[in-house]
């Protein structure tokens, strides 16, 4: 059985870490790691680095992320991105425009009332 030499050893680190070496090859690498201080130390660093990467916290998306995405889609498509829904499901723009119209009318009437001369018949 051929041994793993010093130059080959570090090339096998990833496959060994991923448990993708055959049992023979894994045993040969382990054999080399037992006998070679340099490679053993290198593999310890390798293990520690990948352990630390795997231990990185899984960060959560910030609050309101999903709502933000939906809003973005709405904005880009000027409100025509999604299939139309019932009035209660979405922002009722029709209602807003009616309200605005009412408001303008009310202001007009109030202005007229403030100048009673305009309303008086000759």
């Amino acid at each position: 059985m051929a041994t793993v030499d010093h130059a080959q050893a570090s090339e096998l680190f990833s496959s060994y870490w991923d448990e993708e070496l055959g049992p023979d090859e894994a045993a040969r690498l382990e054999e080399h790691l037992r006998s070679c201080v340099v490679c053993r130390r290198e593999y310890e660093h390798f293990e520690r680095a990948l352990g630390a990467v795997g231990a990185l916290a899984h960060e959560l998306a910030p609050r309101g992320f999903a709502a933000g995405v939906v809003q973005r889609v709405h904005k880009r498509a000027r409100g025509r991105a999604f299939a139309s829904r019932g009035l209660l499901d979405r922002l009722p723009y029709e209602l807003f425009s009616l309200l605005m119209l009412g408001l303008i009318l009310a202001i007009y009437v109030i202005l007229q009332m403030a100048q009673p001369g305009h309303l008086r018949l000759p």
Partner: peptide, 19 residues
Amino acid sequence: RDERAFHEIVRLYQHKVFN
């Protein structure tokens, strides 16, 4: 183009994608 389905998909995958 169902908005609720979209919202649901974003909600399901947001953390994976963000991370």
